[in-house]
Design a protein around this nucleic acid. Structure first.
Length: 367
DNA sequence: GAGCCGTGGTA
DNA sequence: TTACCAAGGCT
């Protein structure tokens, strides 16, 4: 034919079938997932497992989530078990995973499902979207994966795949609606749950941010960014702001009975509802060390160096002080035996500070 | 819409 | 080392 108007300015249409075939061969085996052969026989996963994993996976890597998912399911096998648990236990179990509002909302959501829905998760996107901690992405993901509904599921992986497939120049997050419309038109009525998981697996393992493995991609003949030989240019994002530096001091007090003074942070805000050692406010950096004059009480505070911890929107430099053989008179918190520190709801920054004051204290054996 | 909200892995 | 990024939601 004479239809040689350039080799191929137009590309093949993205084929959901090709992606599903790729998924059948290259899917990841994950603890909460039903494998493709089972899924094709109509086996659906436990909605509780999918909900729990999806909340844990928000802005968090699969690698980090696996151990926490196993721990939660072992300890609370059903959503009713989680609803019956004290929120303090849930926060302590979540400690280290970050974004602690997720843990508070996880508990609220479990309570709502147990109380208002008889322990049964809603099976529609709108019904799920009304639950605490379940937003646009998570409601669509649960509806698709746990209930096989044809929801348009779009996370950061899918955004990357779609932005490259169509070479979308508009920057995120403004381009989200445009991208989601593309996802919706691609989502098949058959196997929508596997399709959603396939898109995310593809983004995580093949259509990676750097050096994507385009030669292995089921969309390689349709991808406009690859045709232009520059997949790494997408997705386009707004530039990020520099992180300011804040500083403060923390005070690790150990009593003559071998217990450490701990407190509970306010429910709202940074590390909300989590456990801390007494600390100053974390303020914009000032010249000169903050010193031990801001300690919760007078004692022989010994400087134990500085801990640097990077949060999402600022870097924190904490001066660590230690005092020992203290009388347990401070009642603005509780005195915890050192061998129980591992059971406390201590976020990572606090564990780092405590470890700086007392090396290896988290390995003090019980009994 | 934009800022807030953790942590650990990777290049 | 620095920078980027991860199955986002809430206000």
């Amino acid at each position: 034919m004479m239809n040689e108007r350039v080799s191929r300015t137009s590309t093949a249409r993205p084929d959901a079938g090709a992606l599903l075939a790729w998924y059948d061969r290259h899917h990841r085996d994950l603890p909460w997932r039903v494998s493709p052969p089972m899924a094709k026989q109509g086996v659906l996963p436990d909605p509780y497992h999918i909900w729990l994993s999806e909340v844990m996976l928000q802005q968090t890597t699969v690698q980090a989530v696996k151990a926490y998912f196993d721990k939660f399911v072992r300890r609370w096998p059903t959503v009713n078990d989680l609803a019956a648990a004290p929120v303090e236990d849930v926060m302590a179990a979540w400690a280290g995973l970050g974004y602690y509002a997720r843990a508070r909302n996880l508990k609220k959501c479990a309570d709502a499902v147990a109380s208002d829905h008889g322990g049964i998760f809603p099976d529609t996107e709108d019904g799920l979207r009304a639950l605490p901690g379940v937003g646009d992405y998570t409601s669509a993901a649960i509806a698709a994966i746990a209930f096989n509904r044809p929801s348009a599921v779009m996370d950061a992986n899918v955004e990357r795949v779609i932005s490259r497939l169509y070479a979308i120049d508009a920057p995120l997050p403004g381009a989200k609606p445009q991208m989601k419309a593309r996802v919706a038109e691609m989502t098949p009525a058959d196997r929508p749950g596997d399709f959603a998981q396939a898109m995310m697996d593809l983004g995580a393992t093949t259509c990676t941010p750097k050096r994507p493995s385009c030669v292995l991609c089921p969309f390689r003949e349709a991808c406009v960014a690859l045709l232009a030989d520059d997949p790494e240019r997408f997705p386009v994002k707004a530039p990020k702001k520099a992180k300011p530096v804040r500083q403060g001091a923390v005070f690790v007090a150990v009593s003559s009975k071998g217990r450490m003074l701990l407190r509970r942070r306010p429910d709202k805000g940074l590390l909300g509802g989590m456990t801390e050692v007494p600390t100053t406010d974390w303020t914009a950096r000032i010249d000169g060390a903050s010193g031990s004059d801001a300690a919760p009480f007078a004692a022989d505070w010994q400087p134990k160096g500085t801990v640097i911890h990077v949060f999402t929107h600022f870097e924190l430099r904490l001066s660590v002080y230690l005092a020992v053989d203290i009388a347990e008179t401070d009642d603005r918190g509780w005195w915890a035996p050192l061998e129980t520190l591992a059971d406390q709801a201590l976020p990572t920054v606090m564990k780092k500070a405590i470890e700086a004051a007392i090396p290896h204290v988290f390995r003090v054996p019980k009994g």
